[in-house]
Computed example of a mutant assay.
Amino acid sequence: MGARHAVLVGVAAVLGGCAGPLSALDPAGPAAGGILQIFLVLMAIAVPSFLVIIGLFALSFKDARGRRVPVRLFLIGGGLVFPLVALSFVTVYGVLLGERITAAGVTPALRVEARAQQWRWHFTRDTAAGPVTRADILDIPAGQPVEVMISSADVIHSFWVPRLGGKMDAVPGSRNRMILRADTPGTYRGVCAEFCGTGHTAMGFSVEAHDPAAWAALTAGRTP
Rank of each mutant, 00 (worst) to 15 (best):
T102M: 06
A128H: 10
I101K: 02
P145R: 05
E99G: 12
Q118I: 13
L110M: 15
V95T: 10
W119E: 04
A135G: 03
G143Q: 05
R115N: 06
R111D: 03
A129L: 11
R100E: 13
V85E: 10
A86P: 01
A142Y: 02
I101H: 13
A128P: 02
H122D: 15
R120G: 01
G130M: 09
G130V: 10
L84C: 10
R125V: 13
A86I: 05
Q117G: 11
F89A: 15
H122E: 15
G94L: 06
T107G: 02
A114D: 00
G105W: 00
D136V: 05
V132N: 02
T127P: 13
T102I: 06
L110P: 04
R134A: 14
A129C: 07
W119D: 05
P145W: 09
A128T: 14
T127L: 14
Q117L: 07
L84G: 09
P145V: 03
E113P: 04
T133S: 09
W121V: 00
G143P: 09
R125N: 02
Q117S: 09
Q144S: 07
P141L: 10
T127V: 13
Q118Y: 04
F89M: 14
P141N: 09
P108C: 13
G98L: 11
A86G: 02
D126W: 05
S88N: 11
E99R: 14
S88Q: 11
D136L: 08
G143M: 03
R100D: 10
L84H: 02
L110F: 11
Q117K: 13
G94E: 04
Q118D: 15
A135M: 08
G98P: 04
Q144H: 09
R134P: 06
A135S: 12
R111T: 13
R115F: 08
R100H: 08
T124S: 05
A135T: 14
A103F: 13
V146E: 00
V106S: 06
F123Q: 00
E99T: 10
Y93Q: 11
L96K: 12
R134W: 06
D136T: 08
G94P: 03
V146C: 05
A129G: 13
I140C: 01
R125L: 15
T127R: 15
V132T: 09
P145L: 12
I101F: 12
L110W: 07
R115A: 12
A129F: 05
F89G: 14
G143V: 05
R100V: 11
A114C: 12
E113D: 15
A109L: 11
A109Y: 03
L97E: 05
T133K: 00
A128D: 15
P131N: 12
H122G: 06
I137S: 13
S88F: 01
R111Y: 02
V95A: 04
G105Q: 02
I101A: 10
